[in-house]
Design a protein around this nucleic acid. Structure first.
Length: 316
DNA sequence: AAGACGAAAGTGGTTGA
DNA sequence: TCAACAACTTTCGTCTT
């Protein structure tokens, strides 16, 4: 595309071939209209050129890096292009003549259509940006494909509910990712996800709550039992301990000891006790670290469990 | 010395006026 | 928007093994 030059608003290539109609030497390729025509006789020779080059131009390598957007593939959808002709208010035709009523109504219908399709395409544009953010965050955190698709679905719902307007796309898509993770029980914390957005944790969590409220998506409360496996794996504890911990949690839940408490802390205490009972003792510090809570929380939950369940722990 | 325990002050989020 | 509040964290001193 070296011979491309800018003429007015049109990008033009001068081609080496002759015009098959009049034999003229100047063939013009217009990217705007997507056709090649002869400058002498005006004959249109081809239609629908597909420009495979980038639509931007870069002069330095840095600029090129900055402007290149290709890389990670889009998933699930590609935004729709087209329908960009603007139909103006139907009083005059292209030559300035006024149009009769019947024709005017017909054109009005067209305009209505067009406005709708514009609304549609603005959503698509928004989605394109959202998907880019989604891909970026997912790649860093290793989010599986099914969760990504769930996240896009969720994001669509957010757009339809009008939640994105006035908020950053990034924070809404981050909230969508978190929602999807929760739904599929992929253990990612809000912090982890928010870390890679400009918005920050607070904003993302606000969006998350809003998302749940406005779209009616139900996410089951986190179950302490879900954390047991992760904690036990990290500390290389046996399946027996896991089972024991799960039983403790079940009993604790029946006694309403778990409500309002951080499930990770609850799980940590259960694992701690289970490990003690099964003779695979780990220190509070180890447990707390594996569960990403503090020792103090482990202690508090531990105390509550021992008292609530009337466990026979040698408290020495 | 390491681990467990708990008090006190600080932090960030929720709730209700 | 603000204050009250509950849960959790941080920090630190004391006790136990």
């Amino acid at each position: 595309m070296d011979s491309r030059e800018k003429a007015g608003r049109e990008l033009i290539d001068t081609l080496p071939e002759k015009c098959p109609v009049c034999g003229g030497r100047r063939l013009i390729r217009s990217y705007e209209r997507g056709e090649v025509s002869c400058a002498q006789c005006g004959a249109v020779l081809t239609e629908k050129i597909i420009d495979t080059g980038p639509e931007w131009r870069a002069f330095t390598p840095e600029e090129k890096m900055k402007r290149s957007r290709a890389g990670t593939p889009l998933i699930s959808i590609a935004p729709e292009v087209g329908m960009s002709t603007v139909i103006e208010a139907p009083y005059k035709d292209a030559f300035g003549r006024s149009i009769d009523l019947k024709k005017r109504l017909e054109i009005l219908r067209w305009r209505k259509w067009q406005i709708r399709s514009q609304a549609h395409s603005s959503m698509e544009r928004n989605l394109t940006q959202a998907i880019a953010d989604l891909e970026r965050i997912s790649n860093i955190l290793g989010i599986p494909t099914n969760v990504k698709e769930e996240a896009i679905d969720t994001y669509r719902k957010a757009i339809e509910a009008g939640l994105v307007r006035g908020r950053s796309i990034e924070s809404v898509i981050a909230a969508s990712i978190y929602t999807a993770c929760r739904k599929w029980k992929v253990p990612r914390t809000l912090e982890e996800i928010a870390k890679y957005t400009k918005a920050g944790r607070k904003d993302v969590s606000r969006c998350y709550r809003l998302l749940l409220r406005e779209t009616g998506i139900r996410i089951p409360l986190p179950d302490p039992a879900d954390f047991v496996e992760r904690i036990s794996e990290t500390l290389k504890l046996s399946g027996i301990v896991q089972k024991r911990a799960a039983e403790l949690i079940k009993k604790a839940r029946e006694l309403r000891l778990t409500s309002g408490k951080d499930p990770a802390g609850m799980a940590a205490a259960a694992v701690y006790i289970a490990a003690l009972l099964e003779g695979e003792k780990r220190t509070q510090r180890e447990i707390a670290h594996a569960a990403q809570v503090t020792e103090v929380t482990v202690r508090n939950r531990y105390k509550e469990l021992v008292m609530g369940l009337k466990l026979d722990i040698p408290l020495t």
